[in-house]
Amino acid sequence: MPLPIKDVIRMIIENTRKSGAPIPLPPEIATGWADGMDIPRGGETVIYTGLLYQLLPYLNASIKKLESLEENAVGATLLKLGKIISKVIDINKLISSVSRDELEKQYDVLRSIAIMLRNADIEYGYLYEDEMYSGVLLFDMGLDDFFKEHIEKVYSVLRKNRVKRIITIDPHTTHVMRTVYPKYLPEYDIEVKNYLEILSSKGLNGGMKSGVEGVIHDPCYYARFQNIIDEPRQLLNAAGVTVLEPPLKTRKLTFCCGGPIESISPKLSRNIAEMRLDELKNINRRIIVLCPICYSNFSRVADRNLVIEDISRLLVKAFGE
């Protein structure tokens, strides 16, 4: 049985307005990845996580919960009774249900990126608990008024911290903060660079072939909306990774992982992920992803023998020393 979609949307709006993110994320969880990394606070150039990787385990847990509501009889009854989603899903329980391991996996991605940037002699700071979610989900859902309200706060925090440039690390935050914000905030003047663009411009070379090979899955937002296509390939090649391409559905013609509708229709989203994975796994069991949403959606449906791996985890082996 499908979810009461309007309730789900209202829950996302409510959470984002109250806590700044679709799922309220305690500050120590949002910033925990940077513990011991000695990243200076603030500065003109900052690494901007947009919280997406940190949110991932919690988003995943909430999607699993929504999925079970769709599928099991008790869930269906609750939905039929008109219990609103925010009452059925206990956010505190949800947050405590995420294991440290799951969170550490995402922290590893963030640390890998931070280390590679540092090794490439990029000077940057971090906003720590001041950093805000980009609001991309509100934009994707067409919630224009709430999106504008949210990004005004984000921009004001950036200005308050005298930030001039941000280094983004995922396709959604990159797209929305580079291309969409200026359409809603005419005065927006933050320069946005993605870490893959920065690293690839450094002409890094990791030396020998690592013997690792994998099939690349381009995220829609990088490939079609930001034209970040050659950079990841160039970096993977330089890191000694053999990159395999899906026939037809690659680069600008890449095929969505289904992630963007995971919260309103987990079942449809899962079917799309399965369809895409069927194609990718026939090419190689290692699937290289460049986006936390793709990582999450594929991981939800992947067989145990598949390895879904964030590009940064492969690159850091060559460029992290």
């Binding site: 979609i5 994707d140 829609c220 079609r224 992630g259 963007p260």
Partner: peptide
């Protein structure tokens, strides 16, 4: 209907 669109741009 539009709510089920991924807005993936393909």
């Amino acid at each position: 209907l539009s709510l089920f669109c991924l807005v993936c741009g393909r």
